[in-house]
């Protein structure tokens, strides 16, 4: 038997039986001969017993709680499955759409990106657009420069020609500049103002003169081809 009183920590360990056999035996011997430690140990046991009685606290309507929780769990599971479904389907749908659009583009332009002129001209005629051919007195670089200055959007470039789209009011300028009959540094609104006095004839190679144009074409975009020198 040890002479000193047992610490509360050791009593607690002894109560929970987390000590080794030798230590436990030594403490039990002390408790048998020490009323103070024995009383302390007995009070500890009583307190733990009282605390453990609190496990009688519980949910009053257990069945109702279980039912409600399960209902929510089922709803959550459905929501999760729906989200998983959309997570799988949406990327597939987007991928399919991209493939479809790329396919359409390939069909229209061909695998090398060169447009199928026959198909396009027919479409242009059907939609009211005007197709033209313009002869250029310059090489490709110069011609591209002229097109850029006149707000043309180049769509196809080959060795022999350039296809582009431009507002119809710039077509005369492009024509004149490509012919070399008009100074290439001058373009834009000055000619556009002059353009309102007359018009251009669609579907033909234009001369540098002023031609009549239908009012509907004035605000439209003209698709044309510039034949390179």
């Amino acid at each position: 038997m040890t002479r000193e009183h047992i610490t509360f920590g050791l009593l607690s360990d002894l109560h929970d039986e987390v000590l080794n056999a030798a230590r436990k035996k030594s403490l039990v011997e002390h408790l048998n001969g020490c009323p103070a430690c024995g009383r302390e140990f007995e009070q500890l046991g009583r307190m733990v017993k009282m605390v453990s009685c609190l496990r009688l606290i519980g949910i009053r309507s257990r069945d109702e709680f279980a039912r409600a929780t399960l209902s929510r769990a089922i709803l959550c599971d459905r929501k999760r499955k729906r989200q998983l479904y959309y997570k799988r389907v949406i990327p597939s749908a987007v991928a399919a759409m991209v493939i479809f659009l790329v396919g359409i583009d390939q069909f229209k332009n061909g695998p090398t990106g060169e447009r199928r002129s026959g198909a396009r001209i027919a479409a242009g005629a059907g939609s009211g657009e005007v197709s033209r051919e313009i002869g250029s007195a310059y090489d490709m670089r110069k011609t591209m420069s002229i097109l850029r200055k006149n707000r043309a959007r180049v769509t196809v470039v080959t060795d022999g020609y350039i296809e582009a789209e431009a507002p119809s009011r710039f077509i005369d300028d492009i024509q004149r500049e490509c012919d070399g009959s008009f100074p290439t540094g001058v373009h834009g609104f000055a000619t556009a103002v002059g353009y309102t006095e007359g018009g251009i004839q669609d579907g033909l190679i234009l001369s540098s003169g002023i031609m009549n144009q239908r009012p509907a074409d004035q605000s439209g975009t003209v698709r044309f081809r510039v034949l390179l020198r």
Partner: peptide, 13 residues
């Protein structure tokens, strides 16, 4: 999912 009710009933308290 209904089987989860066994878990709920066991551990709810």
């Amino acid at each position: 999912i209904e089987a989860f009710s066994a878990i709920i009933e066991k551990y709810q308290d």
